[in-house]
């Protein structure tokens, strides 16, 4: 149900230091998501697409994810041009679409897609375990990292548990319908999921205590910043600076 599909790969992006990838992604996301300049946003999207291509990811899966992201975007194209106000572009019955509204919707589309593509290529190409270590290096509170580690671990356990419970209700002839009986069954299923995994977590915690666990999250990955990482970092920072210049209207 939940797997790191994009993390399996051998491209140069997969081999970059996750700490640098996190830093560059956050900077890019902030600059792009708050930007208004159409030239900057278009260039950002092109950069994101180039990165995506060079990461060599499963094309169909990427397409599927992009479709999900654009579901909401698709919906706003039917609303915003008509509610934004400004100079009239065309009329549709009683509704007036404005030029500014169309540009506004376009900006949102560019921003959203560019940032999400960068997240896919730079973040989702690292394993969660590597990202957790990277976040610890970047001073995320220890408890938060430890919690993230456990949540991710239990996602798989609970995913399997859910499948088991779901199969067992299906074997007993459960058909999912609109009605109290269905809702009640789902409620009990989720309740059971909570309880079963709670008991398991207690056992695991006791086992960890027995092995001397002190609530510390030790860093096991030894990241090493290579020559290529420096090139990536410098290029990334230059790209961010370029986007800021474009946004501020210093160039063009």
């Amino acid at each position: 149900m939940i797997d790191e599909r994009f993390a399996k790969g051998v491209s140069w992006i997969h081999q970059l230091d996750p700490r640098l990838k996190v830093i560059i992604t956050v900077l890019m996301a902030v600059v792009i998501a708050t930007g208004n300049n159409l030239v900057m946003l278009t260039q950002a999207l092109i950069l994101a697409l180039l990165l995506l291509l060079s990461a060599g990811l499963d094309f169909r899966l990427v397409l599927k994810r992009i479709l999900i992201i654009n579901f909401f975007i698709f919906f706003i194209w039917f609303m915003l041009p008509f509610t934004y106000g400004g100079t009239t572009l065309f009329q549709l019955g009683p509704l007036t679409a404005s030029r500014e509204g169309v540009f506004y919707a376009l900006r949102i589309t560019l921003r959203s897609n560019a940032v999400m593509l960068i997240i896919i290529t730079l973040i989702a190409t690292s394993t969660i375990s590597a990202l957790m270590h990277a976040l610890r290096y970047l001073y995320l509170p220890e408890k938060l990292v430890y919690l993230l580690f456990l949540i991710y671990r239990y996602l798989h356990v609970l995913g399997r548990e859910f499948k088991k419970l779901n199969n067992s209700i299906l074997l007993r002839g459960f058909k999912s319908r609109t009605g109290i009986h269905s809702y009640k069954t789902y409620a009990y299923l989720i309740g059971m999921l909570f309880i079963k995994s709670y008991e398991r977590s207690q056992r695991v915690y006791e086992a960890m205590l027995c092995r001397g666990f002190k609530g510390k999250f030790y860093i096991m990955d030894d990241f090493a910043v290579s020559f290529y990482d420096y090139i990536f970092l410098i290029t990334g920072l230059l790209a961010v600076a370029w986007f800021i210049l474009l946004e501020k209207g210093v160039v063009f």
């Binding site: 919690l147 456990l150 239990y154």
Partner: peptide, 26 residues
């Protein structure tokens, strides 16, 4: 947050994640 609460928080969080993937007919 106390140390001994963390496993419970993690489990409930994962369950919330899984529950958000369950589609209920309407």
């Amino acid at each position: 947050m106390k140390d001994q609460d963390i496993p419970k928080i993690a489990v409930v969080s994962s369950a919330l994640f899984i529950a958000s993937l369950i589609h209920i007919p309407l």
